[in-house]
């Protein structure tokens, strides 16, 4: 394992004082992120995701524990770290509201002291990948949400950060805009080796992009591993959807009837008890079947069950 993780978090806690007493938003979490990892950070509302990201980016002081990003303590060396880290908050803009996009990029270039030639080259690349060309003369306030998000991403990666924190970057985007953002992030991670921490509610983002998934709930890390491992560990239930030739009662050994609607039946079965082939064979032995499909466990479903405490890790 790489001895120099880009992010190191140890025993990290954050307590807030509220009118209803103290609340522990982050209740002691530990993890390390190696350079080039693409980590999805998921959890229900109020689980502590944003609080963790704020502590990692240096705009929130931890109550206890240790956090280091690029070898720096974020809240102490925020301005120095700012040159090596990019942050995008989906619902807040970091661009100059009234300025044409082009000028915002120019300002970013000056603030981060990017040599003009270098800036032009990087911008040309970003313009192409994010299709920004027609937007450059438009003031940020006139951009649509999808256009703005592409612009925010471009501004955040223009200084070529080593680490990129993304807080809900696809929230409110339509299918096409989401796809554009995902393609861009995948390429950024693969080609530039940028470490990406992606906070999202959209598990689709995570399954499509992330090599690693961390789930936080009630301030505690309840899962840290690959998406595939999560699927095999918790997604043991598969569903065989059967359209019978005739409307008749169905009973197959090893499966439970979950739902019935007209001639369609949903049969739930456990992956480790019976194979799909075996189950289909048993079914066909006793019934005439018009059609069938096999549904794999949905990651969303698994995570929902984890949140509800039905699939404790």
């Amino acid at each position: 394992m790489n001895p120099h993780p880009v992010i190191e978090v140890e025993g990290l806690r954050k307590r807030f004082r509220t009118r209803r007493g103290p609340v522990e938003a982050v209740a002691g979490i530990d993890f390390r992120v190696q350079p080039g990892e693409f980590v999805g950070y998921a959890g229900p509302n109020g689980a502590g995701k944003s609080t963790t990201v704020k502590m990692m980016s240096g705009i929130l002081l931890p109550s206890a524990g240790r956090v280091e990003v690029c070898g720096m303590v974020p809240y102490r060396e925020r301005k120095r770290l700012a040159r090596r880290m990019g942050v995008v908050f989906g619902q807040r803009t970091q661009l100059w509201w009234d300025l044409p996009l082009e000028e915002s990029f120019e300002l970013v270039g000056h603030l981060y002291r990017i040599p003009p030639a270098e800036r032009a080259a990087r911008l040309a690349r970003l313009e192409e990948v994010l299709a920004l060309g027609p937007l450059l003369a438009v003031p940020v306030r006139s951009l649509s949400l999808g256009q703005r998000m592409r612009a925010e991403l471009a501004a955040a990666v223009l200084p070529a950060p080593e680490v990129l924190f993304l807080d809900e970057p696809t929230i409110g985007l339509d299918v096409e805009a989401k796809a554009a953002v995902r393609d861009f992030l995948r390429e950024l991670n693969r080609d530039q080796g940028t470490t990406v921490i992606l906070t999202t509610h959209d598990l689709d983002d995570i399954t499509r992009l992330c090599s690693r998934l961390m789930i936080i709930d009630h301030g505690r890390l309840i899962y840290d591993g690959t998406v595939e491992a999560l699927r095999t560990a918790y997604g043991t239930t598969r569903v065989l959807v059967v359209d019978l030739a005739e409307d008749e009662p169905v009973q197959v050994q090893g499966a439970v009837l979950a739902r019935a609607e007209g001639r369609r039946r949903w049969l739930e079965f456990a992956r480790d008890e019976v194979s799909a082939a075996e189950l289909i064979a048993r079914l066909l032995a006793g019934h005439e079947v018009a059609d069938l499909t096999l549904e794999e466990p949905d990651i969303e479903d698994i995570v929902r069950r984890i949140y509800r405490g039905e699939a404790p890790p």
């Binding site: 240096g58 705009i59 942050v87 908050f89 807040r92 803009t93 603030l111």
Partner: peptide, 10 residues
């Protein structure tokens, strides 16, 4: 909350 962006710039 947009002011936070100012703290995140060099």
């Amino acid at each position: 909350g947009e002011f936070v962006a100012e703290l995140l710039r060099p």
